[in-house]
Amino acid sequence: MIKAFLIERRSWIAAFLLQQILILLIAFVDPSIPFENVLYIVYLCVMIFVVFVIIRFRKETAFYKSLEEWENNLDVTAISEPETPFEELIEKSITGQTEQLKQSALRNGLALENEKDELMAWIHEVKTPLTALHLIIDRMEEPSLKSQLSYEWLRIHLLLDQQLHQKRMSFIENDLSLEMIKLKPLIIKEIRDLQSWCIQKGIGFDIQLEAEEVLSDAKWLSFIIRQLLTNAVKYSEAADIVINSYEIDERKVLEVKDFGRGIDRKDVSRIFDKGFTSTTDHHNQSSTGMGLYLAKRAAKPLLIDIDVHSELGAGTTFTLTFPKRNQFEHVISM
């Protein structure tokens, strides 16, 4: 701030110093003017000027320091009161622009909220004919056509489900309801929803649950497991998917292991990135790259750690590590 102040006032300082040099030069050239007396006067003027600069520095920079330290959170109360006409102009401009930004942010927020509500309402409306369509497909007798339509219906259902949970993600902390959840019924339900797809691909499930219950939110845990199972089924062919749970160091662990094509080592660290699909499979246009990203985001407020281990051509294992019960204290208190 000192450097900035001196640069700002460099023209004044230069003008003062030139004046003092000029006075000394005149006294030096003109023998009738006592040079020592003029030198003394110049010295006093310089001292007075230094004190003046220090006072003005402390007085003028208080306002600008508050601007420098001001966090741009649309709160102008942290800015010091202006003491000069120029500071008043700056403060007035900032206040006006801040008010405009607040109004703009409010309008954009309301528009975004309305758009989100409309989209969620649309998704719920679409689910009604989608359910009716599923009932019609169940009554079909042609096995091949029925299988194809069931698969396409499932794709639509899963995409709508992702979109619905993506919109709910912004207020997930207010949507949590923690309880002891039995894993087996939850997993069986998710597998049953994927049944037609699994039959089409010849995929079975091997479920071994030593840890039968976990403390979590049933709705969001179902969503996370759904994304992992969908990912496992998508990249597997004619093989079992192994689901097991156990407890280690007072933490419950759930593993979903497939024997599909696996993930390239260079892609492992990126699979939870938004929109990332794969660098090895360029023919799969159905993948949105959102499932694992949303699963990771949903796991964070639930204090669930998601890890992945994979070998290309050998399969992939996703591991959900649940928190200790006492780690949920700050979540429960919200």
Rank of each mutant, 00 (worst) to 15 (best):
E81W: 07
S93D: 10
D240L: 10
I203A: 07
S170N: 11
A15F: 09
S287R: 12
E88H: 10
D267S: 09
M290G: 00
F49S: 04
H157T: 06
Y293N: 09
G204K: 00
F49Y: 15
R139I: 00
V126G: 00
V51T: 10
E190H: 04
D267I: 02
E99Q: 13
A27I: 03
E311C: 06
K324F: 01
D117V: 07
G96C: 03
T277F: 04
S269E: 15
L229D: 03
S144R: 14
D217W: 03
L164P: 01
T95M: 06
V214E: 02
R192F: 09
K102P: 00
F205V: 05
F259P: 01
E87D: 05
V253M: 11
V76P: 05
I54A: 14
R139T: 12
P129S: 08
L133W: 08
V76L: 06
R139N: 12
G315E: 03
V42C: 07
E247D: 03
L221I: 03
I21W: 02
H283K: 15
I241W: 02
V50C: 12
G202M: 08
I181H: 04
E141P: 01
A62I: 11
M169G: 01
L178A: 07
A4T: 12
D206N: 12
R270N: 12
Q208W: 00
L44W: 08
M180C: 00
I33D: 07
E118R: 15
L194Y: 03
K201P: 04
S147T: 15
I181F: 03
Q97N: 11
D240M: 10
P34V: 01
N326T: 06
L22I: 11
I199W: 08
F272M: 08
T77P: 00
G291R: 03
Q195G: 00
L89E: 07
L110M: 10
F259E: 02
P323N: 04
Y43D: 11
E329R: 09
S286C: 03
H124G: 06
E213A: 05
M169F: 10
L186S: 07
D217S: 04
R265A: 14
E173R: 08
S93F: 13
R155Y: 13
I263C: 06
L292Y: 04
H157M: 05
R325H: 11
E83R: 15
L312Y: 11
G291P: 00
S278C: 10
S222A: 11
T128E: 15
L44M: 12
A232I: 02
G289A: 12
Q327S: 14
E113W: 09
E88D: 11
A15S: 14
C45N: 14
V29M: 13
I41Q: 13
L312T: 13
T77F: 06
V126Q: 13
I241L: 06
Y43H: 05
S11L: 09
E113H: 11
K296P: 00
R297M: 13
K257M: 14
L221A: 02
E99C: 05
V253K: 06
D305F: 01
A218G: 03
L133A: 13
E87V: 05
F322P: 02
S196K: 08
I203S: 05
I181N: 04
G275F: 09
F16C: 03
R265K: 15
E68H: 08
I13W: 08
W12V: 06
L160Y: 05
T280L: 10
R139D: 13
L130D: 04
